[in-house]
Amino acid sequence: MDFSTQWQEWHAKRERVLAAPHGWLSLVSIDWLDDEPRAYHDLPGRWWSEDEAAVVEADGELSVDGEPITGKRRFELVESGPGLMIAAGDRVVELARRGGYVIRIRDPKSPTRTAFEGVPAYEPDPRWRFTGRYLPFAEPEPVTVGAVVEGLQHVYQSPGVVEFTHDGRTHRLTAFNGPDKTTLNILFTDETSGVTTYPANRSLNVPVTDDGEATLDFTRATNLPCAFTTFATCPLPPAGNHLPFAVEAGELWPSPEN
């Protein structure tokens, strides 16, 4: 299978995941919980935060992994970690910890999802695929980054940096843990940011071999959820993760101009 065909298959899968019934395009709301038990929108139950945990009180109308929530349930989540999905009929409520606890409704009927026609992208060009090196730290280092939500910060553990060469210059990018043990994730901007690509950030998953060889395929650089919805709390790239050249590869800014 040639480079272009592989990319087309990857891109089609990426669009299917985005457009899944409870994927990122299905978000319709975002609310931060406080210490007062209350209902939100037309959701069943009451929701609040208490002693580093989120509390949900319901009478069986909500469930987690198929188990109904009856009475009060406490959930203590990791800061900036993955959310917990709570079923509410044909909708899902994502509970996450972002500074405080936040709930987001994922509704298959979201206008963003139903109007989705795909993600614009540069044509795949193998010249934007680089072989670099993963340089791990002796110990993971905490890295604090800003967010698209004013005043919010995310704290992640960085296992190291990825180094690669472009046009005779070497560039280093702070990496975070990726979706599996053999993959890192890099948040970055470049000289296309705010011009043809989303201004705040793009994301790149970087496979790494046991001997530290890293593959940076910028044709697979993706938008974070905040490029599609105002209900996301996406992190900004770490300081120094701006590439001083135009990465004319990967997903474009999903705006009317494109």
Results as ranks from 00 to 15, higher is better:
4 S>G: 14
7 W>A: 09
9 E>A: 15
14 R>V: 11
17 V>W: 12
19 A>N: 15
22 H>P: 09
23 G>H: 04
25 L>P: 03
26 S>A: 14
27 L>P: 09
29 S>I: 05
29 S>G: 07
29 S>L: 03
30 I>C: 13
34 D>M: 02
35 D>L: 00
47 W>D: 02
47 W>I: 00
49 S>Y: 04
51 D>W: 06
55 V>E: 03
57 E>Q: 11
59 D>F: 13
59 D>T: 14
68 P>T: 10
68 P>Q: 11
69 I>G: 05
69 I>K: 04
70 T>Y: 13
72 K>M: 12
72 K>G: 10
77 L>W: 03
79 E>F: 09
81 G>Y: 03
91 R>C: 06
95 L>P: 06
107 D>Q: 08
107 D>K: 07
113 R>G: 01
113 R>N: 07
120 P>N: 03
132 G>R: 01
135 L>V: 08
139 E>W: 02
143 V>W: 03
144 T>F: 02
148 V>E: 05
149 V>E: 10
153 Q>C: 07
155 V>A: 09
157 Q>C: 01
159 P>F: 00
161 V>R: 06
164 F>N: 01
166 H>L: 08
171 H>A: 03
173 L>C: 03
174 T>K: 05
177 N>G: 13
185 N>E: 13
187 L>T: 00
188 F>E: 01
189 T>F: 00
192 T>Q: 04
192 T>N: 03
199 P>E: 14
200 A>W: 10
204 L>Y: 01
206 V>T: 02
207 P>Y: 02
210 D>C: 08
218 F>D: 06
222 T>W: 12
222 T>Q: 14
227 A>Y: 06
231 F>R: 09
232 A>G: 12
235 P>V: 03
236 L>M: 11
236 L>A: 10
237 P>I: 02
237 P>E: 04
240 G>I: 08
240 G>L: 07
241 N>I: 02
244 P>Q: 07
246 A>N: 08
251 E>K: 10
257 E>I: 13
